[in-house]
Design a binder for these strands. Structure first.
Length: 267
DNA sequence: ATGGCTACGCTTCGTAGA
């Protein structure tokens, strides 16, 4: 079974490419982030034509997450239980469409779009860290309830865990950029450490360093990218992984998303 | 020269991405 995750940066602008990609790769499960669509405007038909069931969660032109599957799509859950809303000062906090879960052929898949911190001092940074802390707490509960859980937390984590996961760590440091700060990395690493012990099964199985290249400044042609899209698997699921791939080719050509798909194959 | 892109919408700029 193949499970892919892909920040498509607008499902409507990318509809033809996504349909072609599904026909070409024949993944069984595709988790999507940044659909930039509401449930009303989401193009369900491109998945149905290709033989996939799909569940989407979108409430505005921002964010939006979905899971498409051709091996079953059960117990769909929109937002994880502890997921915090974003509160603007003086306004009612708003829940954002950043997480959708579904069980596909026995694997509990969460499609996650971790908030962009925007800036080190920006209120969105504490939102990002709170959001990850809440996800960690719920994940801990799921694994306590079932230590053998087949669980996949996949998506755009908006964190580059290692210095080598950005093209020039000095550039990031000098410009006080997000995605590489100690608190963000600690929040990410907490998923890989005791007691959760989730596994990044992709890193050891692919030579491609990056999953994202900015549209601006010719970043892709200069191969100045970032590794920020991950599939973190429960220990029991990680044992079944036989292959992994970052589909760099999909970043090429006109009309590409700035992120590329990340795929695992499990036995 | 310190830029360069892409997408969205009650669109023709402001917001967001990272």
């Amino acid at each position: 079974m193949k499970i892919a995750t892909w920040n498509v940066n607008s499902i409507r602008a990318r509809a033809d490419r996504i349909e072609d990609w599904l026909d070409k790769t024949e993944v069984d499960v595709l988790a999507l982030q940044e659909t930039k669509a509401t449930d009303e405007t989401f193009p369900y038909e491109i998945f149905e034509y290709s033989g996939y069931e799909v569940a989407h969660f979108g409430i505005s032109q921002w964010n939006g997450v979905a899971i498409a599957s051709r091996v079953g799509l059960e117990d769909v859950e929109r937002t994880f239980p502890s997921q915090p809303p974003f509160g603007k000062p003086g306004e009612e906090p708003v829940q954002e469409a950043r997480a959708i879960g579904a069980t596909c052929n026995g694997v509990r898949v969460w499609s996650l779009y971790v908030p962009n911190g925007r800036g080190i001092e920006d209120p969105h940074m504490s939102y990002k860290l709170d959001w990850l802390s809440a996800l960690h707490k719920d994940t801990s509960g799921w694994l306590k309830a079932d230590p053998g859980a087949q669980l996949a937390l996949v998506g755009d984590w908006n964190i580059a865990p290692l210095d080598q996961d950005v093209w020039d760590i000095d550039f990031f440091r000098e410009n006080q950029m997000t995605h590489v700060t100690a608190p963000e990395r600690a929040a990410f690493n907490a998923f890989l450490e005791e007691p959760l012990n989730l596994v990044d099964a992709v890193r050891p199985l692919t030579d491609e360093p990056y999953t994202y290249w900015d549209y601006t400044k010719g970043r892709f042609s200069k191969n100045e990218g970032m590794r920020i899209d991950f599939q973190l698997l429960s220990p029991a699921l990680a044992q079944r992984v036989v292959a992994a791939q970052i589909d760099r080719e999909e970043r090429e050509g006109a009309g590409a998303s700035d992120h590329t798909p990340v795929i695992i194959e499990i036995a």
